[in-house]
């Protein structure tokens, strides 16, 4: 039921275990339970207990926000500003193209299932943070959309629950539509297997970044995609296009590894260059472990920034 973590004393949930939990809310709660609230900061300044900075008073500012103690010291009017760590919009962008429905041999969950669990966890976790939660599913276009709202957690979970594999997809078109629909900068979590040219992927997600959104990219991969463990000649069928190619895997494995590694490396490099948080999730990994590590890293990195 648990998987080794490498973290002393920690026990994480195996995806196979998660697969047996029908209730997404329960699943999410199970996974997220134990995470510390406030791992992420709101990008907005507002009323909060966390002081941000002083600013010179401008006519029209609320005089209640004047720091009188500083006035006493400096004989100048300054207004106190605080970081708002609430009220953030969190939207989950979920790729449901056919390639996400892949489940490697001997695996309990498909990539899409894993993505659904991850989305549910993120939604639950965000709601715990008192953020507004929404979801967008897409393949070649936007399929389903739940706007971010503090009251939409159930709708979001319900939407995630009834996700099925869509048709052949791409990133640019649906993401550009999503970018147009968000009027307020949000925290966007993109869940996809990113089977496109890295440059094209980054170009598509940059449409979201351009609006000031905080973007987190989760790439979901099956271990079979990373290791290419096939050993018998077979017809390989592309889940996206349906194209079939007769292949002898033994002869291709090495080159496949090279191409896949290069692809992942390029994605990581380009996301880093564009200051986009990126995490590769392997469906064999316990979800809470992956999530914990990612969020921990993100928190650590945000402090550095």
């Amino acid at each position: 039921m648990t998987a080794p973590t490498g973290i002393p004393g920690a026990r994480f949930l195996d995806p196979a275990t998660l697969a047996r939990i029908d209730n997404l809310e329960l699943l999410a709660r199970t996974v997220v339970d134990g995470f510390i609230n406030g791992l992420h900061h709101s990008p907005y300044l507002g009323l909060s207990v966390d002081f941000a900075e002083h600013r010179a008073y401008m006519p029209g500012d609320d005089i209640r926000r004047i720091d009188w103690r500083l006035f006493a010291r400096s004989d100048r009017f300054y207004v106190k500003e605080f970081e708002a760590d609430t009220n953030a919009n969190v939207s989950i962008l979920m790729d449901i193209s056919p390639s996400m429905s892949f489940r490697g041999e001997g695996r309990a969950v498909s990539k899409l299932d894993y993505a659904r669990y991850l989305a549910a966890c993120l939604a639950w976790f965000s709601r715990q943070q008192r953020d507004r939660v929404g979801i967008v599913t897409f393949d070649a276009d936007v399929v389903d959309r739940v706007p971010p709202s503090a009251k939409h957690l159930n709708i979001v979970l319900h939407t995630i629950d009834r996700i099925t594999s869509g048709k052949q997809g791409t990133l640019r078109t649906p993401l550009s539509r999503v970018a147009e629909s968000f009027r307020r900068p949000s925290i966007l979590a993109l869940i996809s297997d990113l089977y496109e040219d890295p440059a094209e992927v980054v170009s598509a997600v940059n449409l979201l970044r351009a609006k000031g959104n905080d973007l987190i990219v989760f790439q979901i991969m099956d271990p079979s995609e990373l290791t290419f463990p096939f050993d018998r000649p077979a017809n390989f069928e592309d889940l996206e296009s349906g194209e079939r190619i007769p292949l002898v895997p033994d002869q291709l494995r090495e080159q496949y590894h090279e191409l896949m590694s290069a692809h992942l490396k390029q994605l990581k490099q380009r996301f880093t260059d564009n200051q986009i948080d990126y995490a590769l999730f392997d469906t064999s990994q316990p979800l809470d472990y992956a999530l914990f590590h990612f969020l921990s890293n993100r928190e650590r990195m945000s402090r550095v920034r």
Partner: peptide, 21 residues
């Protein structure tokens, strides 16, 4: 042979030979 469903053949398609053996 059985048909193996695979998420994407974008890498396999780049490899210049097929059914090599």
């Amino acid at each position: 042979s059985e048909t193996v469903a695979f998420p994407s053949l974008m890498f396999l398609r780049k490899i210049p030979y097929r059914s090599v053996r």
